[in-house]
Design a protein around this nucleic acid. Structure first.
Lengths: 253, 253
DNA sequence: CGGATCGTTGAGTTGTATCAAGACGGGTGG
DNA sequence: CCACCCGTCTTGATACAACTCAACGATCCG
């Protein structure tokens, strides 16, 4: 069955993600695999949950690309994070009843696996290791926010973009979604602007500049890194803040 | 003994903080009060823990004012949060071994109470409620980061500042450190610039502008709010993101 | 083929940074 | 007790990064 396959996909993605941030015991992994998942697919650029809601479930990304964002009263938007398969972007709703931002699929349709809060509470009560791993995941989330704050507050536009490209490369790599120097990043220049705190026009000019420096290509929705060292330097990128289990041996081969 | 008093102060502050974000049971509060605290005072504007360290304890603020920040290679700084008595600014170190930023006292000397990671691990293992409360605390931390990101990315300088003033007012109020419309905020204009992503010169001009609007006074290290409604509107401030137990009935009396 | 979305370009504007210098103010030492 | 000094605040002049507005080109899709 298609559904059974996708379900396995959901558990596989979750396991893979958890292993990239923690070391789970055998029985813990087994129970993660038994978590009831409720699958749903959403079209590209569609909201999944909305600012102000009180969700009773968390959403695990199985396929696709997701962002969290807040709208301002004048219609402008700030994207606070991008999420990839294996992430649970609203894990915080487990302990914060009201959602203080929205979540949406970006660029391409997404397949999501919803997990009841109740089931997550149960599994964390039974397995201290899983509780710790999930807590840790939300802490890494926060660490990424902090790093973005540095960019938004203190880094020039082109550095911000370079930094984002490096970050996504490592995160995609950690869950097996990036090969040597290429990965999929299906966002528009307008999305990028909302994430980097820039106007679309300026994003466009930044992209041209970075292409001219031959640091990367960005055709269609594919990013191809041509000069990892250069990108890292331009973005002042130091992967420590990602707190990955193995932050070594990356794309610079 | 002075130390015994301050120790009680530490536990009192912690209890007060935890009650502002969660509902603890009797026995949980009792065990919180039994947590071993190791007191230390640090001079104003001194680092407490440093980027890259691997702390074995967390630091509870008993008195004073603390910020978390990252330094850039060119010596500029981004402050990512301010912390007040009752906060544990490095609670995340419980699950993220390496610190990805530094922590320092700002403006005035601080009294800190260090809690061994081991003791925190023990108490969370014994009391699911305390584990949840601490996890929740780190999640609120992250929610505040997100809100700051919106400011840094999308709000004009004066709005950013107004927003910060509102946020600090509510947080101080929640732990009994702000009265009707006044509270202590011992930061220099340079600190403010590092928090808001602005130059000192521009902070100065923003302050003048906001004074001219008669929204607040900022003499010495004391902020006096003159027009809460106006500040809230200017800062586009909506307290939802603070996830306080009782976000109602604030300074606008 | 037409419309919608996205990307690109140019011109003009503005918010904020930088540089430089002076004023203020609180603490220290002579 | 005064003089001095250092950090902070303030002000002015100038520079520039990024924004806005507006128009046009490129794709894609129905």
């Amino acid at each position: 069955m298609v559904e059974a396959q996708a379900n396995r996909g959901g558990h596989r993605r979750l396991i893979c993600k958890l292993q990239s941030i923690a070391n789970l015991a055998e029985d813990e992994m087994r129970d993660v695999q038994l978590l009831p998942l409720s699958l749903k697919s959403v079209p590209a650029d569609t909201q999944i949950v909305r600012d102000g809601e009180r969700p009773r479930e968390c959403c695990l990304i199985v396929e696709g690309f997701v962002c969290r964002f807040k709208m301002l009263s004048d219609g402008r938007r700030q994207i606070m994070s991008f999420h990839i398969p294996g992430d649970i972007p609203d894990l915080q709703s487990l302990h914060l009843k009201i959602l203080d931002h929205s979540i949406a699929a970006v660029g391409v349709p997404a397949i999501l696996a919803f997990i009841q809060h109740q089931d997550l509470h149960d599994i964390t009560r039974q397995h201290a290791g899983i509780a710790a791993a999930l807590w840790r995941d939300t802490l890494i989330d926060a660490a990424i926010f902090r790093e973005w704050m540095v960019g938004l507050g203190r880094r020039a536009a082109i550095r911000r973009f370079a930094h984002l490209v490096c970050e996504m490369a490592l995160r995609m790599k950690a869950v097996g979604l990036a090969d040597h120097q290429t990965y999929d990043f299906p966002v528009t220049q307008s999305d990028l602007g909302d994430a980097l705190g820039l106007s679309t026009v300026h994003v466009n000019r930044v992209l041209q500049e970075i292409r001219k420096k031959r640091l990367l290509e960005f055709k269609g929705s594919t990013i191809t890194i041509r000069d990892w060292k250069g990108l890292e330097e331009l973005g002042q990128f130091d992967p420590i803040y990602l707190h990955q289990n193995s932050a070594a041996g990356m794309l610079d081969g």
